[in-house]
């Protein structure tokens, strides 16, 4: 009787994939929803673009499955491939990364506000929209890092592995991004 792969961790599934490629379908099933959300939040891609991007990502994952290093979380590795694929896509399409936040993401913006102790001042939808707009004015590296930290809920270590940078740099960039965001919110407060 074949093992029930539903209970397998991603890392165990990759090991199984190397033995029997049919297990790859389970990984695809697990990551299609997560990566779809990630791509949607990072871009204004159409559903056809998203399908193409997902296809390219999973083809790369499958082709390079033997490169996967089990000391790394599989999710970090696949997000790294997705991140690189997105960058290639921006280049091909000559676009700039734009955060496009859904309803769920707006709740996360609220969480970010709460964490930054700005609840009293920023609680209305209009102000949340302003925050999203402000997020989009940040530099690419800050935008990406805030997205991974607050929207994809990745740890500092995971972000370091995804972006291939030291974890100290992750902390520095998050702090700078928060400061820039706070400054923008202060400006908003002053002007309104």
């Amino acid at each position: 009787m074949p093992p029930n792969t539903d209970d397998f961790t991603d890392e165990a599934l990759v090991i199984e994939c190397k033995k029997d490629q049919k297990h790859f379908a389970v990984l695809v099933e697990r990551y299609v929803p997560k990566l779809t959300k990630y791509i949607k939040r990072r871009s204004l891609a159409t559903s056809d673009d998203i399908d193409d991007l997902l296809q390219n990502i999973f083809i790369k994952v499958y082709r390079n499955i033997n490169e996967y290093d089990t000391s790394l979380l599989f999710s970090s590795w696949i997000y790294r491939i997705a991140h690189n694929e997105m960058i290639d896509w921006y280049r091909r399409e000559k676009r700039r990364a734009t955060l496009s936040l859904d309803d769920e993401a707006q709740d996360i913006v609220s969480k970010l506000i709460t964490e930054e102790d700005m609840t009293a001042r920023f609680s209305h939808d209009e102000q949340k929209q302003y925050i999203i707009k402000t997020l989009n004015t940040l530099g690419e590296k800050y935008k990406e890092i805030l997205l991974l930290r607050f929207f994809e809920e990745k740890s500092y270590e995971e972000i370091a592995d995804i972006l291939k940078i030291p974890s100290g740099t992750v902390a520095v960039r998050i702090n700078r991004a928060k400061k820039q965001l706070q400054q923008a919110l202060k400006d908003y407060e002053t002007n309104n």
């Binding site: 792969t5 049919k22 297990h23 379908a25 389970v26 695809v28 099933e29 299609v32 779809t36």
Partner: peptide
Amino acid sequence: MKPTTDTT
């Protein structure tokens, strides 16, 4: 495993 979504 049989794929459960169109995308998959």
